[in-house]
Design a protein around this nucleic acid. Structure first.
Length: 1016
RNA sequence: GCUCAGAUGGUGGAACUGGUAGACACGCAGGACUUAAAAUCCUGUUCCCGUAAACGGAGUGCGGGUUCGAUUCCCGCUCUGAGUACCA
């Protein structure tokens, strides 16, 4: 039989499913290997051809590792909470769970037909209560923990309370809120329960705090920093504004240093590590206090604010700044505060109030975007107040300007115009002094941030170098109590609440305005039913619509019963027989909650008693290979590392880093095709000088190009214009000939040649169906192409289903790999797929005679055949280990071409070849494997053939002979010869002598087994 | 602006530690088979000069350098893509 890929692929997919061929074992003597894909959000659009790229690569790797004797865990699941399903619910009223279910079914069908070796028995869905029970559980552990800086790890809140009871707040070095209280043990014990709880909240790793959030009115929710791009929401592109809100946050900043250090221990792409480093944004510097002079009498409230900022009581009111260049402190000629800085009002003198107020008003109006676009314009206002430089005693002006950001550092900077370009521009613009502080500094036209040279105009550090000066200044500041060395991070705590329905409920209820965890045995806290998926009229999140959705302490019924039977819960009156009812938290968790630990669930997907058993975690440990897109660099991949480190701290997992090796597959871009329509400008005097007539005539792109380049012969041009005139009876000037570029669906285009009939059919009744197509001189109609994002509106989406229908999954798998290096972004182009399909047919034919009967010979293989086989055995091994899948596809083609030329149909060769190819094209290989007489389904676990170098040994090598580095000819020389013998042999050759032309060579380079180079 | 990645035929790409640049495939051109088309097979295909071959010259974004020899290493630049930003 000819290669019947449809039957073969269906048969084996069914076989694998029926026999659970790829079920990973939990206990085995084999070494473990965990290959993970970033699980998809099941969107309604289904998979396009770009999605499976990474899955195919990881599947090849997983299958290869099985052949290499590993116990491979290769699971798949769905990140099934998310915005699109909810938005669809808002529009249609359909429950997101139903939408999600439908989409998952589509995804599963599409994934199944590509022939992945996933262990589906371990499937996870983040939106399933069995799963999010544990997401909620992890949240509870975070709530019950604080970060002990001395131990450099998270510890339980109980331990903190113990310390407070014994020693008060003394001796606690925690990552916590800024406004913590100081108290003794007795004072702590004297506090009310509510006071204690409210203080503890300042330490918890997940906490409730009023914070400035990215509020997206259009989506009605809060967004994380990484979900906002240039002031607009990443999803939907709606404007985002800053708003103060009570929000759940995650104290990820506690882990900033460990997240940074851990990057050095993992095998990830360097650009991605760099992105995380930038995101964490560690800067080492110093914080410095500038005492305020002659400030107007502050109000008590402002005085309080000042106190918080200062750390040396004796200095009175001060402004704290952060600088990475403490050494430049003598060059400070003014201070700049962010317009939002809390001291601005108290610093403003009556004379300056008008200017300051006007500036603040103007700054407020500017959106984030305008502020960025405006980066070059200098603007600011003088407060009228002065501050004292703590080391020089100089009096400097205090200004406000929006180039200083409220959210970074302390929201205030010491301006050193000689060393900082922004300060320099500001000083020039407002005529403020600029003092050079380093002898070699050149500040004629711009700031010079050099660290070379020696200090001048700098008091006690004059003459010192950068390193010495920095140390001296910091020491002096500490001595004066006016500053200290400080490390600042750009990273902020992660906002954890979303005003959304389709997410994990937060397992928290409120009592006296304070949050408390629900009882662990009441997990999962199931998402309640609501009548509508919109916020309430008062702006509460959708969960506030769930009537009677309250936590009832000490219930009699089981938690499941209680949360599922909403009607029953509704009928409960407050406190009725079952304890008090308290309102639950109404916001839900963000999209990244469920994906921040899912790789552990695969290890033990059905465990009711833990997120995964200790034994399972001890065995599988971490992910050996993780493949996914780089778009998750600062989101998922950072949060996952954070949760992993936390879980390690509390002793629940064994590895500090979750993903040992990570590979980013490149993005598959779209490749759009265009056709060109004649548009001619009709000059109707006095009425519409720029009127354009849009014709229904299209011109082949190669002709269009020639017209643009004036390359068309007059005869050809006449012919073209005649065709046009014939149809429209308009004669026009060639100078008025213009073209309009139109997208054309890529499925009507083959190698950039348009199938006009398909196009007409597609246009249907439209008048365009009768359009004229002026082809090229070969009668073909050529389209142009461009790389764009793959999208429906650009008609360039290629669906894997159609390709599988035409060529089969094995061809699709190999073609996706053949396209180019895995990590490189590239446009999808179906043009080359025929070549891969032909290869598989050729491969199939090797096992069959001319009548398509299966026929292999039992003869001993020849040396040449063995050489071909062992070449590919080694090549695939090397390529897979370095994730160079495209090159092994080429090598397979070479091997099959060679063996076909040798007319090889020997079992001894073909059987091994089947094993080597099976990770790439599993279906055809399974079929041939059974045809060869092996037991069905055993192919996935047979040992990978052993490479034998003996078959590669050659006696002779065709040495390239080059003269002055240019190859002229090849000479067959025995490999047993030594360089001097080779040299003699080559120089004795008559052809070589011809090139030498009686000259004697200056030098002869012989590299054994490589090359001979004669220098003349 | 900064950081990172990249630039090789008409196209996708190969050349792994400096050693025959363009493997493999697409496309294109020509041919065989066929009434014809599809499918299949064969030949050619970096560019230039030579009507064909031999032969010769140029050639991996640009300009230099190191080397017997550079797509590969070094210096300077151009362009493309990605990320990021008044981060003090």
């Amino acid at each position: 039989m000819d290669y019947q890929f449809k039957d073969i692929e269906k048969k084996w997919q069914q076989f694998w499913a029926d026999h659970q061929t790829f079920k990973a074992e939990d206990k085995t003597a084999k070494p473990k290997y965990y290959v993970l894909d970033m699980f998809p959000y099941p969107s309604g659009a289904g998979l396009h051809v770009g999605h499976p790229l990474g899955y195919i690569a990881s599947d090849i790797f997983a299958r290869y590792k099985r052949l290499k004797g590993f116990n491979v865990l290769h699971p798949m699941g769905y990140d099934s909470f998310g915005l699109p399903a909810e938005q669809y619910a808002i529009q249609t009223g359909q429950h997101p769970a139903i939408t999600t279910e439908t989409n998952i079914a589509t995804y599963r069908r599409q994934l199944d037909q590509i022939g992945f070796s996933f262990d589906w028995s371990r499937e996870v869905r983040t939106s399933s209560p069995d799963y999010y029970k544990w997401t909620q559980w992890i949240f509870m552990q975070l709530f019950n923990s604080w970060y002990n800086k001395d131990a450099d790890k998270a510890e339980s809140i109980a331990k903190l309370v113990e310390h407070f009871e014994q020693n008060g707040s003394v001796g606690i070095n925690a990552v916590c809120d800024d406004e913590i209280l100081s108290f003794t043990a007795d004072e702590w014990k004297a506090k009310s329960h509510n006071e204690q709880q409210s203080e503890l909240l300042k330490y918890r790793l997940t906490y409730l705090r009023e914070s400035t959030v990215n509020w997206c009115p259009a989506l009605g929710t809060v967004l994380a920093n990484d979900e906002v791009k240039d002031g607009f929401s990443e999803r939907g592109g709606f404007p985002v504004e800053q708003k103060k809100m009570m929000q759940w946050s995650m104290r990820i900043t506690a882990y900033a240093d460990r997240l940074l250090k851990g990057l050095d221990t993992i095998d990830w792409p360097e650009p991605l590590k760099e992105m995380q480093r930038n995101w964490i944004g560690k800067s080492v510097g110093a914080s410095v206090k500038f005492r305020i002079e002659a400030s107007p009498r502050p109000s008590p409230k402002e005085r309080e604010a000042v106190k918080v900022l200062s750390f040396g009581e004796d200095l009175g009111e001060a402004i704290e700044v952060f600088t990475t260049r403490a050494d430049t402190i003598f060059g400070t000629t003014f201070l700049v505060l962010a317009p939002e800085h809390e001291l601005v009002a108290s610093l403003t003198t009556p004379e300056q109030k008008g200017a300051i107020d006007a500036y603040i008003a103007q700054a407020k109006k500017k959106s984030e975007l305008e502020r960025m676009a405006d980066a070059k314009t200098v603007s600011g206002a003088f407060t009228g107040s002065f501050a004292i430089n703590p080391v020089s005693g100089e009096k400097v002006q205090i200004w406000i300007a929006d180039y200083v950001l409220a959210g970074y550092g302390t929201g205030a900077v010491m301006a050193v115009p000689s060393g900082d370009q922004r300060d320099y521009l500001f000083a020039k613009y407002y005529n403020l002094p600029i003092i050079p502080i380093i002898d070699i500094q050149n500040i004629e036209t711009e700031a010079d941030p050099t660290k070379e040279g020696h200090y001048i105009n700098s008091g006690f550090i004059n003459g010192l170098t950068y390193k010495e000066a920095t140390a001296a200044v910091v020491a002096k500041l500490e001595e004066l109590g006016a500053g200290k060395a400080k490390v600042n991070f750009r990273m902020r705590d992660a906002i954890f609440g979303r005003q959304r329905y389709w997410g994990e409920p937060v397992p928290v209820y409120f009592k006296d305005g304070l949050p408390y965890l629900i009882d662990e045995k009441d997990l999962p806290l199931v998402l309640p039913e609501v009548d509508k998926y919109l916020p309430t009229e008062s702006g509460e999140p959708p969960l506030a619509r769930a009537t009677g959705w309250n936590y009832i302490a000490s219930p009699k019924s089981s938690p499941k019963e209680r949360t599922l039977k909403r009607d029953e819960a509704n009928s409960l009156s407050f406190g009725e027989g079952r304890g008090e009812a308290y309102p639950y938290e109404h916001s839900t968790m963000p999209g990244w909650a469920g994906s921040s630990w899912y790789w552990y669930r695969y290890m033990d997907a059905h465990n009711d008693a833990a997120f995964a058993s200790e034994e399972a975690i001890e065995y599988w440990k971490d992910v050996d290979l993780y493949i996914g897109g780089s778009e998750h660099a600062t989101g998922h991949l950072l949060y996952s590392r954070f949760w992993n480190k936390f879980l390690k701290d509390i002793g629940k997992v064994v590895e500090e880093e979750p993903f040992k090796k990570l590979i980013n597959q490149g993005m598959i871009q779209g490749r759009s095709n265009f056709i060109y329509r004649i548009v001619s400008r009709i000059n109707i005097p006095n009425i519409h000088p720029d009127a354009v007539s849009i014709s229904h005539t299209f011109v082949s792109y190669d002709i269009v190009k020639k017209i643009w380049n004036n390359e068309l012969l007059q005869v050809q041009l006449d012919e073209l214009l005649n065709a046009y005139d014939r149809n429209y009876n308009i004669s026009f000037d060639i100078n008025h000939l213009q073209f309009q570029q139109n997208h054309v669906p890529v499925e009507f285009v083959d190698n950039d040649i348009l199938d006009i009939d398909k196009w007409r059919k597609w246009r249907g009744d439209d008048i365009e169906a009768d359009a004229d197509f002026i082809g090229n001189f070969n009668g073909k109609f050529v389209c142009s192409w461009e790389v764009e994002k793959m999208s429906k509106s650009k008609f360039n989406v290629v669906n894997p289903d159609e390709l599988i229908e035409r060529y089969g999954a094995d061809t699709l798998r190999m073609y996706e790999m053949f396209l180019g290096p895995l990590e490189q972004s590239k446009p999808w182009n179906t043009n080359g797929i025929e070549g891969v399909f032909k290869f598989l047919r050729k491969f199939w034919r090797m096992f069959h005679n001319d009548a398509w009967d299966f026929k292999v010979s039992a003869d001993e293989p020849t040396k040449a055949e063995l050489k071909s086989l062992h070449k590919i055995i080694r090549k695939v091994e090397e390529d897979v280990e370095r994730f160079s899948f495209n090159t092994s596809v080429s090598s397979f083609m070479i091997a099959v071409n060679e063996l076909t030329d040798l007319k090889c149909n020997k079992r001894a060769i073909l059987q091994d070849l089947v094993i080597v190819l099976s990770p790439y094209a599993p279906h055809i290989c399974e079929e041939l494997w059974t045809l060869l007489g092996n037991e069905a389904g055993t192919l996935s676990y047979v040992p990978y053939p052993k490479f034998n170098p003996a078959y590669m040994v050659e006696d002779e090598y065709a040495y390239p002979i080059s003269i002055n580095g240019k190859t002229k000819m090849n000479l067959n020389i025995s490999l047993s010869l030594d360089p001097p013998a080779i040299e003699a042999f080559v120089l004795a050759n008559a052809d070589v002598q011809k090139y030498l032309d009686h000259k004697s060579p200056k030098k002869v380079i012989v590299v054994k087994g490589r090359i001979v180079n004669i220098v003349l």
